[in-house]
C-alpha cells in the first residue's frame, strides 16, 4: 500500500463490507478487523474516514483500537513474527527464542526492521502448547523450536526478498 492510497477515501472493499453488514448491530470491531486485514494496521486517516462514514466520534474508534491488543497503530513488517508467550511456551524457553530473534534482527519487541521486512511482537497463547515453544510468521506456525533453527527459518523469508541476514 502506498501512502497516497491511504489519503484517499475508504477503499471500495471496506465500503462494500460496511454496506453489506449495515443491518448488524455492534459491527465496529469487525470493520476494524477488515481494515487491519487490508493494511496490516489501522492507519489514522482511515480511522478518521471511518468515523465520518459511521458517524461515530474518532475518540470512540480509538477507544476500541487501543483497548484490544490485536489492533495496531503502526505499520508492521512485511513478515510479522509473533513469539508465543503462553505458559507452555514460557516454561519451555519462549524468552530465549525471543531473545535470539531480537539478536538476529537487531530490533526489539513491537518494532520493525529498517528495511520493513520483519517486525516482532509478543502474542498470548496461540493454542499450540503441544509443540511449545512456538512462533508464528504471518500465518505459518513453527513449533518445537530450538534457538539454532531460527537463522534458517528467518533466512527463508530474507531469501524471498533477495536479502541476507548478517550473522556474526
Amino acid at each position: 500500500m502506498t501512502m497516497q492510497k491511504e489519503e484517499i477515501k475508504l477503499p471500495n472493499e471496506i465500503i462494500e463490507y460496511i454496506e453489506k453488514n449495515s443491518n448488524k448491530k455492534g459491527f465496529e470491531i469487525m470493520i476494524l478487523h477488515k481494515i487491519q486485514e487490508i493494511y496490516g494496521y489501522v492507519p489514522r486517516k482511515i480511522a478518521m474516514e471511518l468515523s465520518r462514514k459511521l458517524n461515530i466520534p474518532l475518540a470512540k474508534i480509538y477507544g476500541i483500537i487501543t483497548f484490544y491488543h490485536i489492533f495496531k497503530l503502526n505499520k508492521p513488517g512485511k513478515y510479522r513474527i509473533s513469539v508465543c508467550m503462553g505458559t507452555a511456551c514460557y516454561l519451555k524457553g519462549g524468552e530465549d527464542i525471543l531473545g535470539e530473534i531480537e539478536n538476529i534482527l537487531g530490533i526489539g519487541v513491537n518494532s520493525t526492521t529498517e528495511d520493513g521486512i520483519f517486525s516482532i511482537e509478543i502474542v498470548r497463547c496461540i493454542g499450540c502448547c503441544g509443540i511449545a515453544p512456538a512462533i508464528v510468521i504471518n500465518n505459518k506456525v513453527y513449533g518445537n523450536l530450538k534457538k539454532d533453527q531460527l537463522i534458517e527459518i528467518l533466512s527463508e523469508y530474507t531469501k524471498i526478498e533477495g536479502k541476507e541476514i548478517k550473522n556474526d
Partner: peptide
Amino acid sequence: IEIRLGAGAFVCGEETALIASIEGKRG
C-alpha cells in the same frame, strides 16, 4: 448464527465483558 471476532483481550472471556465486545464496545 453469526460469528464475531475477538481482538486479543483476555478480559473478554468474562461474560459481561464479552457481551460488551459483541456490542462493538471496549470489553
